[in-house]
Amino acid sequence: MACDKALSVQALFDGELDATASAEIERHMVACAECDALFKDLASTRAALREHAPYYRADAALRSSVARALAKETGSRDALGAFFARTRQFWSGAISGAAGAGLAAAFVMFTVMAPVDDRLVADLTGAHLRSLMADHLIDVASSDHHTVKPWFAGHADVSPPVADFAAEGYALIGGRADYIDGRRAAVIVYRHGKHVINVFAWAGREALANETERNGYHIVAWHMDDLAFAAVSDTAVPEIEGLKRLIVGETQSGNKPPTP
């Protein structure tokens, strides 16, 4: 029943084939109706899962109990207090009281010692992670760029271009203000399939590597005018690059006079 190329078709679909093998199986699919249909079915199944099947996420209660278990395992009472202070900050972005002051001091030491790139990368992945963990993904929820961009004007130091690319697979879900390297950054939040992509924009000319990987997160960085941009996600680099191209393209067309 099944064509013996079926697993190769699936491998092509999953991006597991090199260029030569891809070309070969694509040629086969032109001639083999069964494999052609299989490829379309794989795409339909994936689309249905993305639309209907949830990605279950850890809630605050689980995060706390994991944090408690780890702290208990590490033992020392001091460590426990510091851990809660730090995880609280980690989750809510709020620094308060003596624990916060101690944390700030520790943070300064860390940033002084770390090279610029490393510190930025840590800031970006930290902010990305915090946004996913804290239910603090967005401050202004909207798929309408007309409401997101003005919001930045009042809440961040910069007001980057904002556009929705839902038709291209990158749906604008909102905006957020965050801190990168001590400066207020505007964060434009997109959903791409099951993945969140945070696009950070701040006033700066930092020389970030074009592509960085840290702890399973990918960062794609670029500059536009006087703004530094960094798109952070756990999705693959080519997917993030796709969003970057859309944003850059939108800005370039946005600089032209408006067409009626």
Binding site: Y55, Y56, A58, Y217
Partner: peptide, 10 residues
């Protein structure tokens, strides 16, 4: 490891 907590739960 903690960044993969969601993946673990899912």
């Amino acid at each position: 490891a903690l960044p993969h907590l969601d993946a673990a739960l899912n």
